[in-house]
Every structure is written in structure tokens, then in C-alpha cells.
């Protein structure tokens, strides 16, 4: 091997080492955040019958939206369907843990709440679940981010984050954008 060729191989080796270092830095940050800060992707293995979820049970229409149970746990239930979120507006309190539970009766949808880490897919047959705390009030867009058909571009909902003083559940523990 000629001297110049050896030099070229050495340069390539240095470059490979540098790229390995870059990958190692990113991987270390992800592992550290995952193990130390519990920054993991939302994962919830829970099944639901997509053919009947709208008829009765947790995802029946009268049970959708934000609900505060007797223990004070706040849960927002949404059905993602072609081509709308039901309900299209949900209210959640600021600085409190909120659990989103989502189900789809038709095709795969996805959602992201702009400006937050809320980001998940909604697969028919499974219940998607995300926990989060909204740290400032505002009206946040929540578009579908998984192409679900011709009306995909119109599939947008709103998450209304209100100060805790303005978060007033009714007698059944429900809070809607109308009250």
C-alpha cells in the first residue's frame, strides 16, 4: 500500500471515529433521559373493539371530553375519526397532570399538541394514552399528523389550557369548551 493510500485510509478512519462519537453523544443523551428522567415514548397496550367503541363504554359520545373523577384525576377522552376529533375542543387545566386517552373506529390517525411533547398515533383496536402537564394557558392546535384520507388536512382540534381558577367541572365532573 502506498504511503498516500495509507494516509487516505487514516483519514477515513478518523472520520468514521468522529461520526461514531457523534452517534454516541446522541445515544448517550437519549439513554440518560430515558433512564434518569423517564423521558420515554408513550406506550400503552390496551385493546378496544373499534366496531363498538362509540356505542357504549369509555368512548361513548356522552363520556368524551375532559372529566375529573372523584379522586381528582383529570382524563380527556377523544375519538379520532375520519376526518375529525370528537370533541373538536377540549379544556384542560394549567399545571396539573392530564391524561389523554384516545381511540379510533376507522383508520390510523395521529396527533400532536403544538408546543408540547404530546405526540402519539391512534391505531384502531388500541387505546392510546399520553400523560402531560401544560405549563402555560392558551389555545393549542392539535392536528392529525398521520395521513388518514382525503380530509386529513381538515382534521384539527383545539386544546384549551386554562388557569386552574377557570377550570370548573360541572356536577358530573365534566368540563367542556361551552361551559
Amino acid at each position: 500500500m502506498a504511503v498516500d493510500e495509507i494516509s487516505a485510509v487514516q483519514n477515513e478512519r478518523r472520520w468514521a471515529l468522529a461520526m461514531g462519537g457523534v452517534a454516541a453523544v446522541m445515544l448517550a443523551a437519549i439513554v440518560w433521559a430515558g433512564l434518569g428522567l423517564h423521558m420515554n415514548p408513550p406506550s400503552n397496550i390496551e385493546t378496544v373493539d373499534p366496531n363498538t367503541l362509540h356505542v357504549a363504554g369509555e368512548f361513548a359520545e356522552n363520556n368524551l371530553g375532559t372529566h375529573v373523577d372523584s379522586a381528582g384525576k383529570i382524563t380527556t377522552r377523544i375519538v379520532t375519526t375520519q376526518f375529525a376529533f370528537v370533541p373538536e375542543c377540549v379544556v384542560v387545566p394549567q399545571d396539573m397532570q392530564v391524561t389523554f386517552r384516545l381511540a379510533s373506529p376507522d383508520v390510523i390517525h395521529g396527533l400532536i399538541v403544538v408546543g408540547t411533547n404530546v405526540n402519539t398515533m391512534v391505531v384502531p383496536g388500541f387505546v392510546s394514552q399520553v400523560h402531560t402537564v401544560f405549563d402555560k394557558p392558551g389555545d393549542l392546535l392539535m392536528p392529525c399528523h398521520e395521513f388518514c384520507g382525503l380530509g386529513h388536512g381538515q382534521m384539527v382540534a383545539h386544546v384549551r389550557v386554562v388557569p386552574i381558577a377557570d377550570f370548573r367541572p360541572d356536577g358530573d365532573g365534566r368540563v367542556t369548551c361551552d361551559n
Binding site: 423517564h38 423521558m39 415514548p41 408513550p42 408540547t116 402519539t120
Partner: peptide
């Protein structure tokens, strides 16, 4: 470190 982590865990 300045956008993703401050938004907190969702899992």
C-alpha cells in the same frame, strides 16, 4: 436539552 426535555415526559 432546551426544547424537548423541558416539555417533560408524556409516557
Amino acid at each position: 436539552f432546551f426544547t424537548f426535555l423541558p416539555r417533560g415526559p408524556v409516557g
